[in-house]
Simulated assay, not measured.
Amino acid sequence: MIKMYGIKNCDTIKKARKWLEQHQLDYQFIDYRQDGLSAERLAAFSQQLGWQNLLNTRGTTYRALDAETKANLNEQAALALMLQQPAMIKRPLLQLNERYILGFSNDIYQQLLED
């Protein structure tokens, strides 16, 4: 079963969910805000994908951080920020068995069908 992690009102999440539904792929959606996200799960994501890849530096939540906080980011600090403010996690995060895909791309999702 495919699991999709994200925030339901995110435009990219909406595109990814629509794509999965159009291709009749069953998936479970886990909303960081409604369903929560454990520190253990986030650490597992970080181990698989790298905390720098998980951190959504394009979002307004990240951009609102002061320069000192941004300059002093390390894995521990970044994961703590992402737990406090899930909008700072790049999305969607798709999990298929032990395979993780970050972000949405028609081409990458199409490969998912072929694998």
Rank of each mutant, 00 (worst) to 15 (best):
Q28V: 06
Q48P: 03
A39L: 07
L102T: 04
Y100F: 15
R33Y: 10
Q52C: 00
M4F: 08
A64L: 07
L94F: 15
L94M: 15
R41D: 13
Q24G: 10
L93R: 06
P86T: 14
G6F: 02
A77N: 11
H23N: 14
E98F: 05
P92C: 06
Q28D: 10
E98Q: 13
P86F: 05
T61M: 09
H23Y: 10
E21M: 12
I13N: 01
F104L: 13
D26K: 09
E68C: 00
L65I: 07
A71L: 10
T61P: 08
T57K: 07
I13K: 00
Y100A: 03
L93V: 14
F45W: 15
Q34H: 13
M82A: 11
L37F: 15
R41G: 02
Y100E: 08
D35F: 08
Q84I: 07
E40Y: 11
L42C: 02
L55N: 03
Q47S: 06
A80C: 08
L79Q: 07
M82F: 09
F45R: 01
T69M: 06
N56W: 01
E68F: 00
D66C: 05
P86S: 14
S105E: 15
K18C: 01
A43E: 07
R17G: 01
E98S: 11
R63C: 09
N72K: 10
L55P: 01
F45H: 12
L94D: 06
P92V: 06
L83D: 09
G36E: 11
G103A: 12
L20Q: 07
N106K: 15
I89Y: 06
L42S: 02
G50R: 00
A16S: 15
K90P: 05
S38P: 06
N53E: 05
Q24F: 11
Q24T: 14
I7Y: 03
I13R: 01
Q34A: 12
G50I: 00
L73V: 08
A77F: 05
Q95I: 11
R63T: 11
Y27K: 01
G103C: 13
Y62G: 01
N72V: 01
N72T: 11
R17S: 04
G50E: 01
N97S: 13
S38V: 07
M88K: 04
L42A: 02
Y5R: 02
